[in-house]
Design a protein around this nucleic acid. Structure first.
Length: 275
DNA sequence: AGGTACTCCTGAAGGC
DNA sequence: TGCCTTCAGGAGTACC
């Protein structure tokens, strides 16, 4: 599942290939993925537009266009974005196809079709509530230890689902949430309010570290994720707990446990991560 | 308001 | 082998 490191890897792959390119044609093979505006308007506005910049906010990719428009893409579970040169066959699951002036294409592929695309003026991005209410990003000046600890202190619920709450900190999904808790040595079901100052500090550092490691490795290809060139990431080789059910903990050798927390598969070491 | 449950979706995997 | 059920999970929504 694409989380911040995967989306950032895709952004870096695609940036040089798509900036300054003009979209000549838009094929909507599955129009219902377009959430705003209508599919017809989406197609009409995009056609002939030049891409000026490729940005990212949390797990959203932002294609800035001329005339102050922005094409927003959220990959959700199985979305993929590929740049494919003219003449090369497209992905079996391509749902939206953007063709550039020399027939090169940008393809939005998605097996489970849960992804979402939007097109609007930059001044109207507030319409996307996920963007509007998004919390600070790891590895930025806005994401401070004081902010993080303050927010955690006020919450009674389990820490794991809080790490998935994009209004608290943006970009973490199930993989990096489990990895952050493992690195910090915190049980996923521990109440956030009961974390000690030392634990808050360790978790803050861990969130930044696992996100930085994920980006450095070009993302985690656990199942569906591929980068903008269709390549797998490397970070699945360095995971501490995610997807390692029954395999030995890399610190103490205890078999990794898998439980369900707030409806999400959750991996942790029962010896290193105490409640 | 914070917390929980349900919904969307389809291929892979597991049970019998 | 084949049919059926379950699972994967981001995020919007409904509801208490």
């Amino acid at each position: 599942m694409p989380e911040l490191p995967e989306v950032e890897t895709i952004r870096r792959n695609l940036a040089d290939k798509v900036t300054e390119r003009v979209i000549k044609e838009v094929d909507l093979l599955l129009p219902r993925l377009i959430k705003w505006p209508s599919p017809g308007e989406f197609q009409a506005i995009l056609t002939g537009k030049r891409i000026t910049k490729l940005g990212r906010r949390g797990k959203y990719l932002l294609f800035y266009l001329e005339d102050d428009f922005v094409l927003v893409v959220h990959l959700r579970m199985t979305g993929r974005l590929y740049f494919i040169q003219a003449g090369v066959e497209r992905d079996k699951y391509t749902r939206i196809l953007f063709t550039f002036d020399n027939r090169d294409t940008l393809q939005y592929a998605d097996t489970r079709t849960l992804g979402t695309l939007y097109l609007m003026k930059e001044s109207e991005l507030w319409r996307i509530s996920g963007l509007q209410h998004m919390g600070p990003e790891p590895l930025t000046a806005e994401f401070t230890e004081a902010y993080f600890s303050d927010r955690l202190k006020k919450r009674q619920g389990k820490i794991k689902p809080l790490l998935l709450d994009q209004t608290l900190v943006s970009g973490l999904g199930n993989i990096y949430a489990d990895e952050s808790l493992a690195l910090a040595g915190i049980h996923p079901e521990k109440s956030a309010a009961q974390l000690t100052g030392k634990e808050c500090k360790a978790l803050y550092a861990a969130v930044n570290q696992v996100i930085a490691e994920g980006i450095a490795d070009g993302g985690t290809s656990f199942r569906d994720y591929r980068d903008g060139n269709g390549q797998r990431g490397e970070h699945q080789k360095h995971l501490r707990v995610y997807g390692r059910h029954n395999e030995p903990c890399c610190v103490c050798g205890t078999p990794i446990s898998k439980i369900v927390v707030a409806g999400r598969g959750t991996h942790y070491c029962s010896r290193c991560q105490i409640k």
